[in-house]
Amino acid sequence: MKAANRIRVFEWLVTLPSFAWLLILFIIPALLVFAITFKPSTPFGGIGEGWTLDTLRTLSNPNYPAIIWRTIWLSVATTALCILLATPMGYYMARISPARRSLVLLLVILPFWTSFLVRIFAWKVLLHPEGMLKQLLVFIGLCAPDTSLLYNAGAVLLVMVYTELPFAILPIYAASEKFDFRLIEAAKDLGATSFRAFRSVFLPGIRVGLLTAFLMVFIPSLGSYVIPDIVGGPTSEMIGNKIAQRTFVDRNLPHAAGLSALLTLTVLVPMVVIISLRRTGAVNRALIEEGV
């Protein structure tokens, strides 16, 4: 018993730093953001005394739902495209020889060796009306000379997919590598075509990787601000841009905090609901009853 107790104390000591880290740098700031929402702003960009619901009232501004909606659909689209591209990639990487696998893995993480900002500016150069990509597309005839590739939601989506793709590939590859590919053979043996085996055995087999990829892409996408700022235009603003604008231009911290809190809640509430449903097994049972 004494030894067991000692181990428990040790476990606590080991996990304490990460708990402290989470508490000081994540939970307390998040709660502060929520609290500041209910503070008045001062004309000099500070936070005033007392409590107020002013910020909540300004959040009902009709511009916001549109921006929030755009933020969500751009993030969903980015996540969907990334997972769509990363899944075959992960499958492929798990099937090739170890030597080639490390080469491909190197290529996947290669972009990280260059600054994030530099890579986005590179896209700006490519997509620029006089840029190489634009010229090429016009030359091939895929693009009319007067259409703009930059400063719209399409450009934002493209660059977001580009930046987030490795974050989808890596967890999906990690899950695929652990997948028992004999199960695919078993499925084919039972009459499934290659596609059916992929869909009904491989995808459920790497679902942890898919979920991780979803979280790793979707959450940063929701908060993205640099990409829409550089390659986006006024019609492709995301909530991140608004938060930045309120902080740096309007110097209205409570307003920025309110938007941040709103963003956090939009992500957290559906997730908490899904997780609690899964925990009670309601989802699983519903699926079984459906005969899925």
């Binding site: 004999r182 053979e185 039972l190």
Partner: peptide, 16 residues
């Protein structure tokens, strides 16, 4: 394989 009327019991069982 999926067009053959044979089924296999694998050494590892390969249950899903």
């Amino acid at each position: 394989p999926y067009e053959r009327k044979v089924n296999t019991i694998f050494q590892s069982y390969a249950l899903f």
